[in-house]
Simulated scan of single mutants.
Amino acid sequence: MALKILVAGGFGVGKTTLVGSVSEIRPLSTEERLTEAGRPVDSLDGVQHKTTTTVAMDFGRITLHDDLALYLFGTPGQDRFWFLWDELAQGALGAVVLADTRRLADCFSAIDYFEHRAIPFVVAVNCFDGARTHSPDEVARALDLDPGTPVLLCDARDRASCKEVLIGLVEHAAASYEARLRPGAGSGG
């Protein structure tokens, strides 16, 4: 059995890095060099050193047991590639919304996307070197998250840190699905 997980968030937040650091296989990446043609639509504010971007998706895999694997699909961050999200989201167990506190507004669109489709998600704050540290509660308030939406701190470059985020997502998704199956769930009672 395979479980599908999306890794989403704004441009330059570390989605490709997260998939690559945790995948047990060499990840499939559709990274392409940024071009002059993209300059008017790809703001490099806060990510001035970025030279590539995902143009379709990233893919990685983690085997949990002989009969269970996680398939990770990293989404492109720019609005112009959002038409791919609906295809990538089909059948997803849940999503990791990667956030950068220096550009927190960049993850609002991803949060809205998963909230409107009732896809369980966690917010994983990628703790960049030199960025001011904020507590998970502060980030949850700033993002106006629904109560119970987990906010986790991580380093997208660190395999163990990324595994903890994925464990948090799977636990949250399982709890969300169990809550929906309870008698009276969703009927206001």
Rank of each mutant, 00 (worst) to 15 (best):
T54N: 05
F81P: 00
G184M: 14
L93W: 12
L153A: 05
E178D: 12
E32S: 07
H172P: 00
E87Q: 14
H65T: 15
P150Y: 12
D144P: 00
S161V: 08
A142C: 02
D106L: 14
F114C: 01
D137Y: 09
Y113T: 01
T16H: 11
A8F: 03
V123A: 05
L72D: 02
A8V: 06
R80N: 03
L18Q: 00
G148W: 15
S135A: 12
T35L: 09
Q78I: 09
N126H: 04
S29I: 13
G77N: 04
R61N: 03
L169K: 02
F81M: 10
A99F: 11
E31H: 08
L166A: 10
P183D: 07
K50D: 03
S29K: 13
D42K: 11
C154E: 09
I62T: 01
T149L: 10
G77E: 05
T101D: 04
D146R: 12
E171F: 15
T75K: 06
P150Q: 05
P136D: 05
V47L: 08
A89M: 07
E178R: 15
A8G: 07
V125T: 04
R80M: 01
L34C: 08
G91E: 07
E178I: 13
T133E: 07
R180V: 11
D45W: 14
A174H: 13
G14S: 07
S23K: 09
P136M: 13
G38R: 14
F11L: 07
V13N: 00
D112S: 07
L181F: 13
A95F: 05
